[in-house]
Structures are given as structure tokens and as C-alpha cells.
């Protein structure tokens, strides 16, 4: 527990929740993003709708704690239980406003690797639906532990597309989705330069030293002119997070 009475991961969840706007259609995912969806629904985005790649569409958080999106509390009282192709079709059509993704690596232009680590020596599980969400959602948010090996200048395997080599790369290769909007790490948050599409430091978490962020990032980091502190979680946000993660399984230190 940090000095403010909350953990870094609770701060990440609250920050992610604020990315969900009321009425948006969100490709939710598991763990921290699932908690963020619950927080957003309870506080500022009651009309948000969540899609899951197993085919579940729901407008409430799961009825109890879950480990996978297919756990029964995430199925009961859903709006719809349909097919993977059905929800992926909505995604491809441009009907999903926001997706959340984790990865083993994120690079300078927001590209993600979840296939190979450590050059090509450690085999990771693979894309799952991550490449689809990164390719096709109108925008997406990345959540990742901030370590130098996880933030290389260039991913060694491009599983899920960010802005490629930067600039108008996404348009050039034919991707229609908008690309990464934000990266939330254990140390800071990042946005993307509207021209170069390079990842730029936007806010720094309370108590974190800027030199540490630089040291744990694999390229010469630029910052936004108005660099400020990440707003800490409110008591209301913490209450919801702790209701859905009572054992701190996902949000412990």
C-alpha cells in the first residue's frame, strides 16, 4: 500500500476507468480492465456496454468475482450471449469505441508484442484477441507493468498494431481502427504525439521520480509540455475496486 492509502494497480484501474465515457461500447478484457469497467459503470458511465470476445455482451459488471470472461457470473444476466464472430464483426465494422489490452512489450509507437520475449528465446501465449482489438477498435488503451525490458524502442515481434513506424503508418497498411490513445503503466501514463505518433509521457504517478521513468523506458523519452501528476483514485473509485477485488487478487502490490 502506498502513502496515499492505495496501491499502484488501484491507481491504474481508476485511471483506466476514466477513459470509458458514458454510452460507449467497450471491448473489456480481463483483470484490471474488467475492474475499470465496473468502476466506470458504477460512477460516471452507467450507460456503457461491454463486449467480450467469447460472445458475451453485458451492461453490468459480473455478478461475482471471476477469473475468465467465460466464468458463469459473467454470463448470467448478460444482455446477449452470442458468438465470437458476431462480436468481432461489430468490432470490425467500427462499432467498438474503446478496447483495453495488456502485453509483454509496448514500444515507442505503441506496437504490442505478446508472442515472443527476450528476442525469440521465450515463447509467450500469443495474440488471442489482442491483435483484433488493436487493429479494429476506434481507440485502445494499453495497461502494462513499467520495466525497461517491457518498453523497448522496437518490439521484436509485432503481434498487435500500434502506430507501426509512426506518422500515417496505420493508414498506409490499411488499418481502419484509430490506434492506441493511452498507455497506463505502474509508473506513469502516456499519450501519443498527433503527428509523429510517438509515445509521450503525459502524467507521472504520485511519488514516482521522473528519472526512474526515464531509466525504465527503452528510448529517449519526450514529455508533454503540461506534464503533471496522475490524479489519485477517489474514495468512491477505491470503494468499487475493493468491492470487485476484495482479496486484492488483481490490485495488490
Amino acid at each position: 500500500m502506498g502513502e496515499g492509502g492505495y496501491t499502484r494497480r488501484e491507481l491504474m484501474v481508476a485511471t483506466a476507468a476514466r477513459e470509458i465515457k458514458n454510452g460507449e461500447v467497450v471491448f473489456v478484457g480481463m483483470r484490471l480492465p474488467l475492474l475499470a469497467f465496473a468502476v466506470a459503470k458504477a460512477i460516471h458511465a452507467p450507460r456503457a456496454v461491454g463486449l467480450f470476445e467469447n460472445g458475451v455482451i453485458r451492461d453490468t459488471p459480473p455478478l461475482g468475482p471471476i477469473v475468465t470472461m467465460s466464468d458463469p457470473p459473467n454470463i448470467a444476466l448478460a444482455i446477449s450471449c452470442t458468438t465470437l464472430l458476431d462480436v468481432m464483426g461489430l468490432l470490425q465494422q467500427g462499432r467498438v469505441d474503446l478496447g483495453f489490452l495488456g502485453a509483454a512489450e509496448v514500444d515507442r509507437f505503441g506496437n504490442l508484442n505478446s508472442t515472443w520475449a527476450d528476442g525469440r528465446r521465450i515463447r509467450l501465449p500469443g495474440s488471442g484477441g489482442a491483435c483484433d482489438i488493436a487493429s479494429l477498435s476506434r481507440r485502445f488503451v494499453v495497461m502494462i507493468p513499467h520495466e525497461r525490458r517491457r518498453l523497448p524502442e522496437r518490439v521484436s515481434y509485432l503481434t498487435s498494431p500500434g502506430y507501426g513506424e509512426g506518422g500515417n503508418w496505420r493508414e498506409r497498411v490499411g488499418l481502419r481502427g484509430g490506434g492506441p490513445a493511452k498507455v497506463i503503466t505502474t509508473l506513469a501514463t502516456f499519450t501519443f504525439d498527433p503527428e509523429s505518433r510517438e509515445m509521450v509521457l503525459d502524467t507521472i504517478h504520485p511519488g514516482v521520480d521522473l528519472d526512474l521513468v526515464r531509466a525504465e523506458t527503452g528510448w529517449p523519452l519526450r514529455t508533454t509540455p503540461e506534464l503533471r501528476e496522475t490524479p489519485p483514485p477517489t474514495p468512491q473509485e477505491l470503494e468499487v475496486i475493493r468491492r470487485f477485488d476484495p482479496g486484492k487478487i488483481w490490485t495488490g502490490e
Binding site: 468481432m88 483484433d132 487493429s135 479494429l136 515481434y157 498494431p161 497498411v173 490499411g174
Partner: peptide
């Protein structure tokens, strides 16, 4: 056909 995975290593 699909629009997913364009520009990736897949």
C-alpha cells in the same frame, strides 16, 4: 477476408 492483423508479423 478481414481487416484484422494488417501490417503485423502474423
Amino acid at each position: 477476408p478481414t481487416r484484422t492483423a494488417l501490417g503485423t508479423d502474423l
